[in-house]
Amino acid sequence: MRTVVITGGTDGLGKGLALHYLHQGARVLAVGSTPEKGEALLAEAAALSALDRVTFLRADLTSVAAAEELVTTIKGTCRSVDQLVLCAQRYRLFGPRTVTPEGFEHSFALAYLSRYVLSHGLREVLEPAPRPVVMNVGTPGVPLGRIHWEDPQLTRRYSGTKATLQSFRANDLLGVAFAALRPDTRIRYIGYNPGVVATGMPDHLPRPLRSLTKASFAVLATTVAKAVTPMAHLLDEPPGENFSAYRTTRRLPLKGKAFDQGAALRLHALTQDLVLRRRA
Rank of each mutant, 00 (worst) to 15 (best):
V142H: 10
Y192N: 05
R207H: 10
P130H: 10
A269F: 04
S33F: 03
M201V: 13
L209W: 07
P152N: 11
A26S: 14
L122M: 03
D172P: 06
H20C: 09
P35V: 10
I190H: 09
V176T: 08
K226N: 13
L267T: 04
H233Y: 08
V85H: 00
E150D: 14
Y116K: 14
G175S: 05
Q261K: 11
P239T: 10
G38W: 12
S244R: 02
L86K: 00
A43V: 00
R53H: 09
A43G: 06
G195I: 02
E44V: 07
F259K: 01
V176E: 05
A258K: 05
V81H: 00
L267G: 02
T73C: 06
W149T: 10
N242P: 14
L252S: 00
T199A: 07
V176Y: 09
A43I: 00
L265Y: 10
C78H: 04
A65Q: 09
K255M: 11
L252T: 08
K257N: 12
S119I: 02
S80W: 04
T62W: 01
V133E: 05
T271E: 03
V31W: 13
I147K: 04
G103M: 01
D184A: 05
D11Q: 15
R210G: 08
T10A: 11
L61C: 03
R156P: 06
A263L: 09
G16Q: 09
T34E: 15
A50I: 03
V219C: 11
F94D: 08
L174Q: 01
Y192L: 12
V81C: 06
R53D: 05
E150K: 14
